[in-house]
Simulated assay, not measured.
Amino acid sequence: MESTQKPRVGIIGGGGYTAGELLRILVHHPGVDLAFVQSQSQAGAPLHAVHSDLIGDTDMIFTDEAGDADVIFLCMGHGRSRGWVEQHLPAPETIIVDLSTDYRMDDNWVYGLPELNRAALRGARRIANPGCFATAIQLGLLPLVAAGLAEGEVHINGITGSTGAGQQPVPTTHFSWRNANVSIYKAFRHQHLAEIGRSAAQLGRKSTTGLNFLPVRGPFARGIYVSQYVEANVSTEDLRDIFSSYYQGAAFTHVTTENPNLKQVVNTNKGLVFAEEHDGKALVISMIDNLLKGASGQAVQNMNLALGLDETTGLHLKASMF
């Protein structure tokens, strides 16, 4: 008789925002069993001591070591995943989904943007989850690249919620500073530009320069709203045909003809894209929830693909408009 045991899933680095969102999804995921949640700083404490929204959903406690699992999510933060992998040497058949920057430029890992690499993600065992800004920007940019409309200068403006900076408090995430305030940071040199450029090259963009990105800190907790434009002699109708064709069959990315707003995607794994022509310019607006489609939701989507599950499993999350 065939075994009906579900794949076992573990989380390394369970105390942060991305781990909390993973837990929100995984404790109710019908296709896997949550085996352990590791956190050195929280070992022995119940999960809801850190992630208080889990009260009533699970009585699991944090462990100080990794246990046995078929899938491991690495949520330790940038620069720490590679060291963990080299120290623990997970078995080749173990699916590793890394949510840090450590493997996004590594040819031995599949870059986990399903709208670009869905076929390669099916059955993959080493997956580098994209960055949140990188995901939002690429959802708007890659169809332009595929259509040959983004060889020149691309002008990108994106605003992100405070949770994009992680759980560790810093001056620019403090409520009294962030509230009713905006500021630009890392102008033209954001760390996600490298992975965006790499994906654009994968689709045939010849230029290695010209991605001009101004990231903005927003006065809200979660979500990313990106507007970008290129010089292009193309009608609104043709633009929408390009985007609809590119995202035909996409599980979570939807093309809209109505000017969208961020609340339509917050608390969901959706990506929403809008395109129209303005006086010889192609304007594209794209948006995601930075903690879900930009991190944990996309990580579960990638896990689903790697396990051969329907990629939407456990991710039917509705936005909260008010």
Rank of each mutant, 00 (worst) to 15 (best):
P219N: 08
S245F: 14
K186N: 08
Q191I: 02
A165M: 05
G164Y: 15
A187S: 05
I242C: 04
R198D: 14
H190Q: 13
F252N: 03
N181K: 02
V230Y: 10
G161V: 06
T257R: 15
K206F: 04
R189Q: 05
I224A: 12
E231R: 11
D241T: 07
R205T: 00
A200Y: 12
Q202V: 06
Y229K: 12
S244W: 12
K206W: 14
E237M: 03
G210L: 00
E195Y: 06
V216Y: 11
L239C: 00
K206A: 07
G197V: 02
R205N: 04
T208N: 11
N233T: 09
Y185H: 07
Y229W: 12
H174L: 08
I196Y: 13
Q248C: 00
D238E: 15
A194M: 09
V170L: 06
I184S: 11
G161Q: 04
Q167Y: 10
V216L: 12
I242D: 12
G218M: 05
G166K: 06
D241K: 15
L239D: 01
Q167D: 04
Y229S: 10
R205C: 00
G249A: 06
Y225R: 07
I224T: 14
V216N: 15
A200Q: 04
Q168F: 06
K186R: 12
G161L: 02
Q168D: 00
S235I: 07
S244D: 14
S227N: 11
A250F: 11
F252A: 02
F220T: 03
F188I: 01
N212E: 01
P169N: 04
F220P: 06
Y225T: 04
H192W: 09
F220Q: 08
N212A: 00
D238T: 12
